[in-house]
């Protein structure tokens, strides 16, 4: 489904991602683990096209989409939930969702309803400005917004970072449920090792912009990953 080959990207003239290669299979969940500053977010931003890669290739279903602008990649089936519970702060929660649903014609209203069913709390907060929501609520809003595009591949950047524990559990449950449904592949960037390995069939450890360790997911991989991250 997604094939990343020797991807190089960075900011200005400094590359921070140095030739990363990985694949995400159809209906598969792949996680990328690493410390702060390992270039995990840069990887996702480069895959989506928010940063223009200076080298390498991104292929979606065999088609080269490396140079495609982000909004066209979204139309091609990618969706992105950025780090930090990002929203459009002056738009209401409902406007945040309608914004995406508007572009989907008749299916938009249906997709919006489905997203609200997934996070019922958002129904009650529909009229509140996103900037006034709590971190957990904003993260639910961000995931709902991404799902309205009916993606085939979801790019999740540290979805549980900086959120109160009660909501973390709910978000983790939702991600596992989504991944288990079929029809959706996930590239998950996480620092939360236990959750990431539980969700993913394959993991990659990223350090200073390079993949240093790769293996099968699952709880059995926990010690190997911890060791890789400690070195």
């Amino acid at each position: 489904m997604l094939e990343i080959t020797e991807l190089v990207a960075g900011y200005g003239r400094s590359d921070v991602l140095h030739g990363v290669s990985l694949t995400v299979p159809e209906d598969g969940v792949v996680c990328v683990l690493g410390h702060n500053g390992a270039a995990k977010s840069t990887l996702l931003r480069a895959v989506l096209g928010l940063i223009r890669p200076s080298g390498g290739r991104v292929r979606l279903d065999g088609r080269d989409v490396t140079r495609l602008p982000a909004h066209r990649k979204v139309r091609a089936g990618l969706a992105y939930v950025p780090q930090g519970q990002q929203s459009f702060p002056q738009l209401t929660a409902l406007e945040n969702l309608r914004l995406v649903a508007d572009g989907r014609g008749r299916d938009g209203a249906h997709a919006l309803d489905e997203a609200l069913d997934l996070f019922p709390a958002l129904r009650e907060l529909a009229g509140r400005r996103a900037g006034l929501l709590s971190g957990g609520q904003r993260q639910q809003l961000a995931i709902a917004r991404a799902l309205i595009t009916r993606p085939r591949l979801l790019l999740l950047d540290e979805p549980t970072e900086g959120i109160q524990p009660s909501v973390v559990a709910e978000i983790q449950r939702t991600i596992l449920e989504l991944a288990g449904r079929g029809g959706l592949s996930v590239l998950l960037v996480e620092q939360h090792i236990d959750f990431a390995l539980r969700a993913a069939q394959r993991y990659h450890v990223l350090e200073a912009g390079r993949i240093t360790s790769t293996g099968e997911g699952g709880e059995a991989a926990r010690d190997r990953v911890r060791e890789a991250l400690t070195v």
């Binding site: 982000a70 909004h71 929203s87 459009f88 995406v100």
Partner: peptide, 18 residues
């Protein structure tokens, strides 16, 4: 809504398919 979204968060708007 699209205008306000782009004004408030350009990257997120682009990443939302706008």
């Amino acid at each position: 809504r699209r205008i306000r979204a782009v004004v408030q968060h350009r990257d997120l708007a682009e990443a939302s398919g706008i």
